[in-house]
Amino acid sequence: MHKNEERTSLNKDLPESEQNPDGRGRSTASYIVAFHQDDSAHWVAELSCGHTQHLRHQPPWQSRAWVLDPQQRSEKIGQRFACGWCAQAHE
C-alpha cells in the first residue's frame, strides 16, 4: 500500500506564487491580508509574510466553495494560514 504525503500546494511557475527577493516571510505562521484574482480569474490569497497562495474551488480535488462568495472570502481575512513557501525555508 502506498502512503500519500500531502503538502500545501505551490506552483513555482506562476508569478503569483514567487518568493519575495527582499527576504519577507521567514515564519510559517502567516495570516490572510487580502485576495486578488490572477489573469485566469483564480483567487489568490495575499499573506502577511509577503507570499501568495492560489485558493481554487475545483471539486473533487479542492473543495473551497467559500472562495467564490465575496462575503465568505472577506470573512477569511485575518485568519491564520500556513504558508508553504515559509515552511520550505524552514526545512
Rank of each mutant, 00 (worst) to 15 (best):
Arg56Ala: 13
Ser48Gln: 03
Phe81Trp: 14
Trp66Glu: 08
Pro21Trp: 12
Trp61Tyr: 09
Arg64Gly: 02
Glu6Ala: 06
Arg7Ser: 11
Gly25Leu: 06
Gly50Gln: 11
Leu10Trp: 10
Thr52Phe: 03
His51Ala: 01
Asp39Val: 06
Met1Ser: 14
His57Trp: 11
Ser40Pro: 00
Asp69Trp: 05
Arg73Val: 01
Asp69Val: 05
Glu46Asp: 14
Gln71Asn: 03
Ala89Trp: 09
Gln79Pro: 01
Glu18Ala: 12
Gln72Met: 07
Gln62Phe: 12
Ile32Met: 07
Ser27Thr: 14
Cys49Met: 01
Ile32Val: 15
Asp69Phe: 02
Ala34Val: 00
Gln53Trp: 11
Ser63Phe: 09
Ala41Val: 13
Pro21Ile: 15
Ser9Gln: 07
Arg73Gly: 00
Ala65Pro: 02
Thr52Asn: 13
Ala89Ile: 06
Ser48Trp: 03
Leu68Ala: 11
Val44Lys: 07
Arg80Ala: 10
Ser30Pro: 05
Pro21Glu: 13
Phe35Arg: 06
Arg80Phe: 09
Ala82Cys: 05
Ser74Tyr: 02
Leu14Val: 11
Ser9Met: 07
Ile32Glu: 05
Pro15Thr: 10
Trp66Asn: 07
Ser40Trp: 08
Asp13Arg: 09
Lys12Trp: 12
Pro15Met: 12
Trp43Pro: 00
Lys12Pro: 07
Ala87Tyr: 11
His2Asp: 07
Leu47Thr: 04
Gln72His: 02
Glu75Tyr: 05
Val67Gln: 08
Asp22Lys: 15
Arg80Trp: 07
Ser17Trp: 11
Cys86Asn: 08
Asn20Arg: 15
Asp69Lys: 04
Glu75Lys: 13
Lys76Arg: 15
Trp43Glu: 05
His42Asn: 15
Ser27Leu: 06
Thr8Tyr: 09
His54Gln: 12
Lys3Trp: 06
His57Pro: 05
His51Trp: 02
Leu68Val: 08
Trp85Thr: 01
Gln79Asn: 12
Asn4His: 15
His90Ile: 12
Ala45Phe: 01
Lys12Gln: 12
Ser9Trp: 13
Asn4Glu: 06
Ser9Leu: 13
Glu91Pro: 00
Gln37Glu: 10
Leu14Thr: 10
His2Asn: 12
Gln19Phe: 04
